[in-house]
Design a protein around this nucleic acid. Structure first.
Length: 268
DNA sequence: CGCTAGTCCTGTCTGC
DNA sequence: TGCAGACAGGACTAGC
């Protein structure tokens, strides 16, 4: 579910938990833990030093160089709750009890997400591509990774080993903004198109963050607030609706198992 | 090595 | 109202 702007928003709303002392960590589903390099029980008594983001991952840094890495998969949510028990909330796999009586709940119905208890975040991120909002993600880098690639440009944008954080919504939106068809072979993009695409990716992601993410169905930040970027979508989820630019109906086509939305008039 | 297709899950919506 | 089938914001991996 959550892509870079949504995870960034969750990270921002979780800042109110920084400094809080962990009373206990409750792992209700052991199979949600992908890796444990230390005993999570040892986190009790320490405090949360920071909460950051890498790609679509949340990084919770505790004392003593102990990290909890969280990936929310397709349906994951993080709640910062002050209630002892949230009624009607199922599929909560992890609860971090804080000594101020708040708790961080990790819910994930489909369980495509997971968590890692590691002493060094690099072991999880070793193969990850550049952050698209960093200065190193630029025309030179995109030129280098599209070179000779015979995959659809959209497939490349979704490849987390190349660029980390772009998902199905923002890939479609960035390609519409750049006026490039998602089916175009990556290696066929010219310098001009690469330049526009870099700019479009950054612009769309920044707008998504500005709007606190996209809520199509169940996305919420850790304060349970929905995002607002769904009101600004140009193509995603707008199949057969009029293109905001030219008025022609938006097309939908499956590319690499993912539904893709585009305007066949505006995008070439 | 690069790439495609199948797989992991549950919930919700659509059409019969 | 019930039920089958499609579909969903992600990402691994077997196999070509």
């Amino acid at each position: 579910m959550p892509e870079l702007p949504e995870v960034e928003t969750i990270k921002n709303t979780l800042q109110s938990a920084v400094g809080a002392v962990v009373q206990a960590i409750e792992i209700r589903r052991q199979d949600y833990v992908r890796r444990a390099d230390y005993d999570p029980a040892g986190l009790s008594g320490g405090n949360i030093a920071s909460v950051t983001r890498r790609g679509k991952y949340l990084v919770v840094h505790f004392h003593n160089d102990q990290y909890l890495i969280i990936h929310l998969g397709m349906s994951g949510r993080v709640f910062l709750s002050s209630e002892v028990d949230v009624p009607g909330l199922s599929h909560v796999h992890v609860v971090i009890h804080l000594s101020d009586h708040r708790q961080i709940l990790l819910q994930d119905p489909r369980r495509f997400g997971g968590i890692w208890f590691v002493r060094e975040p690099g072991v999880v991120f070793s193969h990850m591509g550049l952050e698209p909002l960093s200065s190193s993600f630029n025309v030179r880098y995109l030129t280098q990774i599209v070179q000779n690639r015979r995959v659809a440009i959209k497939t490349l944008l979704l490849n987390q080993n190349m660029i980390s954080g772009i998902g199905n919504i923002y890939a479609d939106e960035a390609l519409f903004s750049a006026r490039i068809l998602p089916t175009r072979m990556a290696g066929s993009l010219n310098n001009h198109e690469i330049r526009i695409l870099v700019r479009s990716i950054k612009k769309v992601l920044r707008a998504g963050i500005e709007q606190r993410g996209t809520t199509l169905r169940d996305y919420r930040d850790s304060d349970n607030r929905p995002g607002g970027f769904q009101n600004y979508l140009q193509v995603y989820g707008r199949h057969q609706q009029a293109c905001h630019r030219c008025g022609q109906p938006i097309q939908r086509q499956v590319i690499n198992q993912r539904s893709s939305h585009f305007c066949s008039v505006c995008q070439k």
